[in-house]
Amino acid sequence: MHNITNQQLPKWNGLDAKGSEKADKDKINAAKWEFTHLSKPQLETIALDPSHTFSEPEKIAAFERRHSIDQSELADYKRTALQASHGKDAIHIFDKALQAHFSGISTLGKGMLTDEYQSQVKAQFSQTLNGKSNPSSSQSDHYYSVMVEHLFGGSEAPIRSGKDGMTIENATKCDFDFLTSGDRKLIASMYQYAEANNIDVKFIQSFAMDLGDYRQHGNGQILGDCNEGTYDMQGHKVTYSFTEKDQATIDSLLESNALASSGIDRGFISHITTPGKGALGHLGSFQFLQHMVEVTAGEEPTVPADEFRHFKPKTKEERFVRTLSEEVYPFPEPDVVCKNGHCEVTEVGKKNGIKLDSAMSATTPDFDLKADLVESLFQRIIDPQTQKQVWFEWLAKDK
């Protein structure tokens, strides 16, 4: 490890931790997604755990998340340097950025790096620079490795199937695990395109999360439409729609001839552009989606690549429009109450002969019931087997 101080500091012992029987992969994945919004200093504290309060899977998850952020930052420096006209200038720009980057890493963070960190990063940049000057078949392998670094923290997960729905095992996996072989190759090519066109890779990561979520839910088949019979606690019917900007982009995309020859799954595009499914569920940019549909179809993009140099996460107001009906609908006591992914038939439901089975569990609405968004939602669902009307109450998730 990098010798940064004479003080006794905690060190990252990745090999020992990853070899531990306690380092269960499912727990690592679950923790990784809990840590999605943490900063590098927070992740470093968890990974090195000077207070000894975190489990082995949590420490590994924090390390992998921190590594992913670091790789994303290095990718930004590479993209900037590669804009230089001459190779020597590109190397100078990148070396200067790397030096500033390394100087800005905290003491704990440097304890997680090897002595060869800077030399390895420089060697990787030289490989990228040489590949840009002398394209070869090895480039596809290189960008596939970049994809693995960014999405899987350097260790690619086996491809999982979402056809069985949100089983307990599937629910503990991250979205990226469900990306197909074709998806992963497509996303790898996006990284290559992003590097050549100075695009922020966070646009790709958000796209990959949306696509992975679609795959995880059986290509969207086990997700209900939240615009079909959803009500708030006061009895107002709730509908969700896209913002005016996103709807204009979606209309242009769906009318485009590029859809027929694009490399992006048309089923996914249909799913993500359906208001009751995509408005609340999407994380990525519809403008970037349209751009990549056109690029993969070999057409001139409507929105230029320059628009995607900097990714900014959207607020709820920028992602969707929530509308309540003026009319208040009376509804009975719920037959089923769900919270934190667990559903139970109420006494009223039992009297009505309601039974939960795989068909009914496939109605999960595609929205995230965070406590700061809503307290609960009521949803009227038709049982596909009995054709009975069933009332679900979806309670807000615990923070």
Rank of each mutant, 00 (worst) to 15 (best):
T5D: 14
L9G: 02
W12M: 09
L15V: 14
G19H: 06
G19Q: 07
K27T: 09
K27M: 08
P41A: 00
P41D: 01
E44A: 10
T53R: 13
F54I: 07
S55W: 00
E58Q: 10
I60C: 02
A61R: 01
A61F: 00
R65T: 07
R65K: 09
S68R: 06
D70F: 12
E73G: 09
A75D: 12
Y77R: 11
S85F: 13
I91F: 10
K96Q: 09
A100H: 13
H101L: 04
H101C: 03
G104T: 06
Y117F: 08
Q120L: 12
Q120R: 10
K122N: 11
F125Q: 02
F125K: 05
L129K: 00
P135Q: 02
S138C: 09
V148C: 04
H150P: 04
P158N: 03
P158H: 06
I159W: 04
R160L: 15
S161C: 07
S161K: 08
D164K: 14
D164S: 13
D164N: 13
I168H: 15
C174M: 13
D175H: 10
S181V: 13
D183W: 01
I187V: 10
A188I: 05
M190P: 06
Y193K: 04
A196Y: 10
D200E: 00
F203P: 00
D210Y: 00
L211T: 01
G212Q: 01
G220L: 01
G235H: 03
G235P: 05
T243G: 03
E244A: 11
S252T: 13
S252E: 11
S252K: 08
S256T: 04
A260I: 12
G263H: 06
F268S: 01
T274H: 11
K277F: 02
K277M: 07
K277S: 05
K277Q: 09
G281F: 09
G284E: 03
G284I: 00
G284D: 01
S285E: 03
F286H: 04
Q287T: 12
Q287P: 10
L289A: 08
H291Y: 08
M292S: 05
M292K: 08
T296N: 05
P301N: 02
F308I: 01
F308A: 05
R309T: 12
P313T: 03
T323R: 11
E327G: 06
P330M: 08
P330C: 08
P332A: 11
E333L: 10
E333N: 11
E333S: 11
V336N: 06
C338T: 12
G341S: 07
E344N: 12
T346I: 07
V348S: 14
K351G: 07
K351Q: 13
L356T: 10
D357S: 05
A359F: 13
D368T: 14
A371R: 14
F378V: 06
P384S: 02
T386S: 04
Q387L: 12
Q389C: 08
V390C: 01
W394R: 04
A396P: 02
D398K: 11
